[in-house]
Simulated assay, not measured.
Amino acid sequence: MQVYQAKLVSLNEQAIGTAAHGSAVLVVNGDQLVVTIEMFDTPANQQHWEHFHGFPDGRSAAIATMAQDANHDGFVDLPETEPVSGTTMVPFNDQPEAMDIPNDKYPVADANGHFAYTKIVPLAQLSAEFKKAFNDSELDLDKRVIYIHGVAPELDLPATVAGAVGHYDQHVTLPIAVGKIEAVPLA
């Protein structure tokens, strides 16, 4: 068994008016990956996309900070995270092993901005789909970062905020929290 964790800290809190924070624990146990994510102070009553991001070439990803606001519009949008965090890799939705990222099957925060997500993922299927998507890359969890996304649709975003994916606009993809996945030493 191997345990990984990430402390999820807020990103874009000045611009969105709330400091989303939480934690993630990923446990590799035999042929399963158990993912548990709990978030607080997210934008309330809405769905939040959550994924791990990284580099297919095996480089270690880092979390984005306001230093990544390349166009100085006051927001770190999804494309601005890519130089330090890489690409979106695995979704934490209703079926992570399917690697179907743009959909409406992610957790929804309650009226207090809280949500808890737990999923048991078949590791062999996830690894196979991951290798297909990323040229035989390994999951390498300790080289990845987790992002939580999503702000209220009525939030006024400047035209400079990018990150639309299909018919999902920047409100859906704007990062609100991020954390580096780290291996937990087992005693």
Rank of each mutant, 00 (worst) to 15 (best):
S137E: 02
G166N: 14
F55N: 09
A152V: 11
G179H: 07
F75M: 01
Q32E: 14
V165M: 06
D136H: 08
S60W: 08
G163T: 10
F115I: 05
T18R: 03
I63A: 00
G54S: 03
N93I: 01
Q14S: 10
A152G: 15
H149K: 08
V9Q: 08
D73R: 00
G150N: 10
Y106A: 05
L174S: 06
V9G: 10
Q2D: 09
E154L: 08
A20E: 01
A98V: 13
D110M: 05
V172E: 07
V145R: 02
H114Q: 07
Y147Q: 13
M99C: 09
G163L: 02
G58R: 14
P175T: 05
D169H: 11
A159G: 10
P158L: 08
A67H: 06
S85N: 01
M1L: 08
Y147E: 12
F52K: 07
G166M: 13
P91V: 02
E97D: 08
V145P: 02
K105R: 11
E13K: 15
Q5P: 00
E154R: 09
P122G: 02
T160S: 02
D110N: 13
I101R: 08
Q46S: 11
Y4W: 05
F130H: 15
T88Y: 13
D94S: 15
Q5T: 14
A15G: 15
K180W: 05
E97F: 03
T42G: 07
D73L: 02
I148S: 07
L8P: 02
G74D: 01
H21V: 11
M99R: 05
A98F: 13
S23E: 15
D156N: 11
A15Y: 04
P79I: 00
E138M: 12
T118C: 10
L174T: 04
I120N: 14
G166R: 13
N45C: 13
E138D: 15
F75I: 00
P102K: 04
M1R: 04
P91H: 09
D69I: 03
E154Q: 15
V3L: 14
E82G: 11
M1W: 13
E80F: 02
Q5S: 02
D100F: 08
G74S: 01
T160P: 06
Q68M: 02
Q47P: 13
E80W: 10
A61I: 00
I16S: 05
N135F: 13
L11D: 03
E38S: 07
D110G: 13
A162I: 02
E154A: 15
G163S: 11
G150E: 01
D77P: 03
A183K: 15
Y4N: 02
V121Y: 04
E97L: 06
N45S: 15
G166H: 06
D104H: 05
I146L: 08
D169Q: 07
V28M: 09
K143N: 11
D94N: 15
P175R: 04
E138G: 09
S85T: 01
I101V: 07
I176E: 01
H51I: 12
P153G: 11
P56G: 12
P96D: 09
P158N: 02
V178S: 09
E13P: 05
I181C: 06
D110E: 01
P102Y: 06
D110P: 06
G30L: 08
N135G: 11
K7H: 14
Y106S: 03
L126P: 03
A133E: 07
D41P: 10
S23F: 04
D142W: 05
V25E: 14
A159C: 00
E182L: 06
L26S: 09
E50M: 15
P175M: 05
